[in-house]
Design a protein around this nucleic acid. Sequence first.
DNA 1: GTCTATAGTCCGATAGAC
DNA 2: GTCTATCGGACTATAGAC
Lengths: 193, 193
Amino acid sequence: MPRWEHGSEERLKQAAMDLFSEQGFEDTSVVQIAERSGVTTRTFFRYFSDKREVLFADSDTLRSELVRAVAEAPDVVDPLQVVVGVLSTFDWEGRGRDIQRRRYAVIAANPELMERELIKNARMADEFAEALRARGVDARLARLAARVGREIFLLAYEEWLVGGSADLAVIAKDMTALLWSMQSPETTTPPSR
Amino acid sequence: MPRWEHGSEERLKQAAMDLFSEQGFEDTSVVQIAERSGVTTRTFFRYFSDKREVLFADSDTLRSELVRAVAEAPDVVDPLQVVVGVLSTFDWEGRGRDIQRRRYAVIAANPELMERELIKNARMADEFAEALRARGVDARLARLAARVGREIFLLAYEEWLVGGSADLAVIAKDMTALLWSMQSPETTTPPSR
DNA sequence: GTCTATAGTCCGATAGAC
DNA sequence: GTCTATCGGACTATAGAC
């Protein structure tokens, strides 16, 4: 382990976040990020597959954590509830709301970064669906629950981010109730349990 | 406006689709596409902001068409129904299922193209939500209906694409019913009408 | 760690349509 | 003449190859 190079990844992530915040994503080059971190661009691309990925490195480990939570849910009789529950009861507060607000602001300000955010979310939903299916949920139902649950959570998360001190789980529950309030009589089918 | 070789844009789109299909997106360069179309790369970038966009040029006009349909819906008392209805009753058959299948195969085979597809869908949902809001729907409800409606449609669309001769509107209705079947008793709120 | 291909931008020039 | 579409080439940065 080369001790003098230790921490490169963290320094790169920090430098990228700072530079993107200060001068925007487009106007920041990988060379700049590398220079500020005391490494070469080659080192940057050793850690991150592309320039955008430096902002999403953590999201991969986070995703597997969340997928595991779905896979280990006590029961899956209500798959939508499982998805929304796992996502909204995760300890987002513990990761710092300000940091997440800042990160989201950078991402929202740049379409290329938003594209990456969206595909990460899509992959997470796909893995949620697969985890539910592995637990015996019908494939079609699993996909639907994963996708709709993700949307409910994302809307709740956005409100939580910009909002004051509201609890994310509460917002998510509220959002779910709002969805059910849209059920029109003519398209109603009797609950299956 | 029209000139001798005014079909440049169409030729570029066709050449790109063919080449991406034959040898993959990554292994096709803009130079190749331009050469096959008898123009230079400069001309390619005059029509398309980047290499991916050549596959999505039509989707922009399509989006505004669909957004207009939402804005002009007879009524918006059931916003989810409006979104799913507008999307699923559009004449997708008329655009050729084979062409759409081929296009989707190319997109699904490449993450970069999927990223673009996702952000286009996200923008469409945003505009749907705004159109609903303009019609008097509560902002929160409008966003929720737009996003959930989009997911219901996309799942139905994917089934329609791979499937035989099933009607898209029917699949979408079925998918909506499946969503309502997930409503759990404890989170139920009384229907508002 | 160096070298190179490709994406994408910029400026200026050209030529047909009107 | 203007307007619009095309072309030429030089240029930077990303990203991958060697």
